[in-house]
Design a binder for these strands. Structure first.
Length: 277
DNA sequence: CACCCCACCTGCGTGC
DNA sequence: TGCACGCAGGTGGGGT
């Protein structure tokens, strides 16, 4: 579900409410997530500690606690992090798997229909292993057309799959990969290694523009994404190809096509998005 | 290595 | 109405 913009919107919503708050209780549901730290570990490392920083790496939320403890949260496809309070509880929700109770009566609720998410705790001095696999942030100055071109050199895989590979560029998922390639006029099946420096320049510029605008619009809600206040995003209004199979291309009028790449749907305009010769 | 497939889950829309 | 099937924003383990 949530790609970089959605995770960033959640982070921005949570940070002012949670910063400097202390964890006082953890409640765990019956069903566990795909990966989840045992209750005892969560309790042992979280309780009594204050949140000192909330950051994002790719699609991971990184909660830094006093004394060097790290709580890592990944929302998978359908995960939500919602804020409730004892005085003002949220409407009855199914699929709540974890509730973190804070010292001001706030509750940080992890809710996830499909349970593909991850909630992991790491003791002081133990760098969270999943973060080692996360690639560079799209907004980092370390990411340049030259660097992308070098990463793609000799690669035969389609550019769509390259963009989805979070070990290279972090945070881009299926929706934004489709939108970025449409904006850049690049056919999604183009072998990544065949793109020119000029192509990479356009791809990078459109990546940053689209991600930034999606954050500004509160993310994309195509099914059930909600921010930490339970509100939907607005960027779905700006989508030009994702989910638009057989609709007319907004630029040229040709029908939008759906194709399957590595088992995932790609939407594109076969007229606007050409393979290089 | 590089790349692809499929499993992991639940719910919803479609077509018979 | 009921049922079967395909599809959904994610990763990651295992096979070729």
């Amino acid at each position: 579900m949530p790609e970089l913009p959605e995770v960033e919107v959640i982070r921005l919503g949570l940070a002012p409410r949670l910063m400097e708050r202390r964890f006082v209780r953890v409640t765990v549901g019956a069903k566990s997530l795909r990966r989840q730290s045992p209750v005892r570990e969560l309790e042992h490392w979280l309780l009594g500690r204050k949140l000192t920083d909330l950051s994002r790496r790719g699609k991971y939320l990184v909660f830094a606690l006093e004394g060097g403890v790290t709580l890592l949260v990944h929302l998978g496809m359908t995960g939500h992090l919602l804020l409730g309070s004892e005085s003002k509880p949220l409407p009855q929700l199914d699929h709540i798997h974890l509730v973190f109770h804070l010292d001001n009566g706030l509750e940080l609720i992890y809710q996830d229909i499909r349970r593909f998410g991850q909630v992991l705790v790491f003791p002081p001095g133990v760098p969270p292993a999943p973060l080692r696999e996360v690639g560079r942030e799209p907004f980092s100055r370390q990411v340049t057309p030259q660097w992308l071109s070098a990463q793609a050199r000799g690669r035969s895989r389609p550019i769509k799959n390259f963009l989805l590979d979070g070990r290279i560029l972090a945070g881009i998922g299926n929706i934004y990969a489709c939108e970025i390639l449409f904006a850049a006029g690049v056919h999604p099946a183009t072998p990544a290694g065949r793109l020119s420096l000029k192509d990479w320049g356009r791809i990078l510029k459109d990546t940053r523009r689209i991600l930034k605008e999606a954050i500004r619009q509160g993310g994309t809600t195509v099914s059930n994404y909600l921010n930490s206040h339970g509100e939907a995003g607005l960027f779905q209004v700006q989508l030009l190809v994702y989910g638009k199979e057989s609709e007319h291309c907004r630029r040229c009028g040709a029908p939008i096509v759906r194709l399957i790449q590595s088992g995932r749907s790609t939407f594109f305009c076969s007229k606007c998005q050409k393979m290089p010769d």
